[in-house]
Amino acid sequence: MIIGTENYLAVSLLLFVIGAVGVLARRNLLVVLMSVELMLNGANLAFAAFARARGVLAGDVIVFFVIAVAAAEAAVGLAIVVALFRKRGTVNLDRFTSLHQ
């Protein structure tokens, strides 16, 4: 069987949707951050597959930039998790409601 762009897109869609379910259903801030990483990976895979389908290497460059921004996002996000944990002593998202009051 020949592996086409559709197969790669199906895997990337599954990764993205599983990550989205993680963001929506989990209340642990650390796991939500990891689910966001999963969603970014799904998008990256789609970029790389489309780059092959269209024969343009620009998709690879975009994935490189996405990975760089994701690294910055992970560092800042985890620093915020640590700061919140110091302040509140929990990583439960449902407890962070001070803007809501």
Binding site: I2, I3, G4, T5, E6, Y8, L9, A48, A49, A51, R52, A53, R54, G55, L57, A58, D60, V61, F64, F65
Partner: peptide, 28 residues
Amino acid sequence: GFDPVSPVLDGSARRVAEIIFTSYVYPF
């Protein structure tokens, strides 16, 4: 449907770097 995945497109570091440091140098 999409075009099939073309294995000829070479995503080696040299080829990607050529694009990054010409067309995408400001985003970099």
